[in-house]
Nucleic acid binder design. Structure first.
Length: 433
RNA sequence: UGCUCAGUAGUUCAGUGGUAGAAUAAUUGACUGUUAAUCAAGAGGUCGCAGGUUCGAACCCUGCCUGAGCAGCCA
């Protein structure tokens, strides 16, 4: 007899199999009991009938506790009365690990309680579906960049200086010197692009900002591609192709998970059609002013979440907002060739109110300009000499972007809050578990 | 960090000055197709912490702690 996983059950109809499972819920009457089972691959139910298995085993089945682990042996049946489409008629049970007073019950719980039990909450259906989709997006990321000829160059996590200087950094010690946790691998990816042409990084990012919103994490994962001999227009094409590829990957491989989340695949299908609309920052300001909803808004300020939501809702698609004012963007962005007040950059705003998921730009290539900008930003030139070397020795036009994985997962899975898009979220007041 | 709200049974909540409540989970029993099953029974409490007002405080006042929502910042 074969030991299988639940997800394979449909291949073993009318056969005897054995499955290692946990109990997620149970219902019983005098002569029949339904055990809701999960094994980490899927959820389905086992049926155990007293007349078939005898008094003793039936009693044992009724005694099983929530999240107790055991092996079931039985026959797989196709059955429309079961949500999964298949179920197992149990002929034997072998108990493995007991479970007393499992805290998470099938009833409602508050967010504080669930976050305190995040290590257990991950077992529930909704979290299972989100994590499987997150995994698919990671898998698709590697597939996409490999097929596009990128190689993965890992950026360091410990750095000796502030890469962008603006946001707050986590401070730590590097033996007897100061060090900081990475808030972006981008500058290192630029070095990678000069060595390997098309590169990307995928790693954790740390921001010691006191932000407390549904779209912020203190620790999150970012995908940062960087491409040599590439102007912004081609970069935008890669960006939208990548995002559409992520959505398509989820549509191809996660239909079961989308159903568990009640996320309509038809909505996601719209996001696989390219190109995405593009508007300039100037046009965006005009649109927002014309809407009459943002009377205070002036050219030169960054958008908040209400503005981003308005823009993305207007197009009902991811939308690129291009060429922001120089004053609100970091020092390394390429200045516009005919205007000195904007830079060559774009943010991709996700629809349905999910906000910015990508920030990207063409990078400045002129050494003198960069030195000026570094000074203006109040940074120490000495910390950036290695970065300036990239311009001194064979500088080429190059562009790159960063995609926040959890923001993209939150959008594609249709979640309210980013905290459920990462296994163990680090939030302003939360570092346990 | 600012503004707003909340903290009472394992959990989700009601209780606005006079003996601490409900639902649900867990426990025991009944029930042959349940989908948050249903029905019955018993059990379950440092009312976030400290101080104050009062004959009397879960409730009013002060301080503190913890969390959530929104904003700024950003991906």
């Amino acid at each position: 007899m074969k030991t299988i996983s639940i997800i394979e059950a449909k291949k073993y109809v009318d056969q005897q199999v054995r499955i290692g499972v946990w109990l997620t819920n149970k219902r019983s009457s005098g002569k029949i009991a339904f055990l809701q089972l999960r094994d980490g691959t899927a959820y389905f139910q086992g049926v155990i009938v007293k007349n078939e298995v005898g008094e003793e085993l039936f009693h044992e089945a009724k005694e099983l506790r929530l999240e107790e682990s055991f092996y079931v042996t039985g026959t797989i049946h196709e059955d429309s009365r079961s949500h999964f489409g298949y179920e197992i008629e149990i002929s034997n049970l072998e108990r493995v690990g007991e479970s007393e007073d499992y805290p998470i019950t099938p009833k409602e719980h508050g967010i504080d309680f669930l976050m305190d039990h995040r290590h257990l909450w991950l077992r529930s259906k909704k979290q299972f579906a989100i994590m499987k989709i997150r995994n698919e997006m990671i898998r698709a990321t590697y597939e996409f960049f490999n097929q596009e000829g990128f190689i993965k160059i890992d950026a360091p996590i410990l750095t000796g200086s502030a890469p962008e200087g603006t946001t707050e950094l986590f401070h730590t010690k590097y033996f007897d010197r100061d060090a900081y946790l990475s808030q972006s691998g981008q500058l290192y990816e630029e070095a990678g692009a000069m060595a390997f042409n098309k590169v990307f990084s995928f790693g954790p990012t740390f921001r010691a900002e006191k932000s407390k919103t549904r779209r912020h994490l203190i620790e999150f994962w970012m995908i940062e591609p960087e491409m040599a001999f590439m102007h912004q227009e081609e970069s935008l094409e890669i960006q939208e192709k990548y995002v559409a590829f992520l959505v398509q990957g989820v549509l191809n491989n996660c239909q079961y998970e989308l159903k568990l989340l009640d996320r309509d695949p038809k909505v996601l299908e719209r996001y696989t059609k390219l190109p995405y609309p593009r508007i300039s920052y100037d046009e965006a300001i005009q649109m927002l002013q014309d809407s009459g909803q943002f009377p205070e808004l002036k050219w030169g300020v960054d958008f908040g979440s209400p503005e981003e939501t308005y823009l993305a809702e207007h197009f009902k698609l991811p939308v690129f907002v291009m060429n922001y004012p120089k004053s609100i963007k970091p020092f390394y962005m390429k200045p516009h060739p005919t205007r000195d007040d904007v830079v060559i950059c774009a943010d991709l705003l996700a629809p349905e109110g999910y906000g910015e998921i990508i920030g990207g730009s063409e990078r400045a290539t002129d050494t003198k300009y960069l030195i000026e900008q570094i000074k203006k930003a109040g940074l120490k030139q000495a910390d950036y000499e290695w970065y300036l070397d990239l311009r001194r020795y064979g500088s080429v036009p190059h562009s790159g972007f960063g995609l926040g994985l959890e923001r993209a997962v939150t959008w594609i899975t249709g979640q309210e809050h980013i905290r459920e898009s990462i296994p163990f979220p680090r939030l302003l007041n939360r570092i346990y578990p």
